[in-house]
């Protein structure tokens, strides 16, 4: 080997210029577009991820709403059943009470009727008894009632009719 391997000269300057030129060229032609594409992919993936996340959240929301609705519906059904049961019980009680009342009324009116009928019957009997008494009296008078005892009998009879009132 001859000469000193460490010799500085204008090669250094030429290299600097060449290298800066290469840097500029590659930046413009290679690294720039390449990094742009990589960035695009990154944002694309990012947006896809966030979209997926959004969809997951939405699905969860829908699921929650659905469950809530299910719960509400079940509760409502329960309420409806409970209400219906209550109403029917009430109704049954009402009907029972009404029928009791009705029966009472019917009984009362029946009693009243009976009373009236009896009164009527009694008054009729009384009238008839009076008529009969008159008739009997007439007959007795006509046939010249001779037996005193018979008169007592009639008296007693009238007495008994009077007591029936």
């Amino acid at each position: 080997m001859g000469g000193n391997p460490i010799q500085f000269d204008w090669t250094l300057v030429a290299t600097i210029i060449s290298f800066l030129l290469l840097v500029w060229l590659l930046k413009a032609k290679a690294w720039g577009p390449l990094m742009k594409v990589m960035e695009e992919r990154r944002t694309h993936i990012e947006s896809m991820l966030s979209q997926a996340e959004n969809e997951r959240l939405q699905a969860e929301q829908i699921k929650r709403e659905y469950q809530e609705e299910m719960r509400k519906a079940r509760q409502e059904a329960q309420e409806v059943i409970a209400k219906a049961t209550k109403v029917s019980e009430q109704r049954a009680a009402e009907i029972l009470a009404e029928s009791h009342e009705e029966a009472e009324k019917i009984k009362k009116s029946a009693l009243v009727d009976i009373e009236r009928e009896r009164d009527r019957a009694i008054s009729e009997v009384k009238a008839q008894v009076a008529d009969l008494s008159v008739l009997v009296a007439e007959k007795i008078i006509r046939q010249k009632l001779d037996l005193k005892g018979q008169g007592d009998l009639i008296e007693q009879f009238i007495q008994e009719v009077g007591e029936m009132q």
Binding site: P5, I6, Q7, F8, D9, T11, L12, V13, T15, I16
Partner: peptide
Amino acid sequence: INVTMALAL
């Protein structure tokens, strides 16, 4: 050395 020194500079 010129090239490496250029890069180092």
